[in-house]
Design a protein around this nucleic acid. Structure first.
Length: 109
DNA sequence: ACGGTGACGCTCA
DNA sequence: TTGAGCGCCACCG
């Protein structure tokens, strides 16, 4: 699956933290979503949700890591390099229910 | 080594 | 319930 990703993971500039984030994010099943906090916790660094957001923002591997499946814990969409609208579109496409306000029904795993 | 930045989160009013 | 404020952590100049 992600041999391309493995290569990029080796590139300098990618910190161990960021690596963990990408890997964890890649595990999110299609049609489901996770939160920045969840990711942070999963990689053994609860409270680092902000840092997680930073890592995803840089996200060197676009489709390999479904960063659009990561939302805020309060149900908000959060951010997206390609535009939140795009992010919402993708999620709806995957079956995630979102209210007109851009709020997610939170369909965590 | 220091301070600023940002796709977050929780508390208080 | 909604909005504003403060605290968090890792990264970069």
């Amino acid at each position: 699956m992600a041999r391309q990703m493995e290569k990029k993971l080796k590139e300098p500039g990618i910190t161990p933290f960021a690596r963990s984030v990408y890997i964890e994010t890649a595990k999110i099943p299609k049609g489901k979503v996770s939160t920045y906090s969840e990711i942070a916790e999963a990689i053994g660094q609860p409270g680092a949700a902000r840092a997680v957001g930073n890592a995803l923002n840089k996200n060197p591997f676009a489709p390999d890591v479904p960063c659009h499946r990561v939302v805020r814990s309060d149900g908000r969409i959060g951010g997206y390099a390609g535009g939140t609208d795009k992010k919402i579109g993708l999620l709806k496409k995957e079956g995630v229910q979102i209210s007109s306000d851009g709020k997610i029904r939170l369909l965590r795993k």
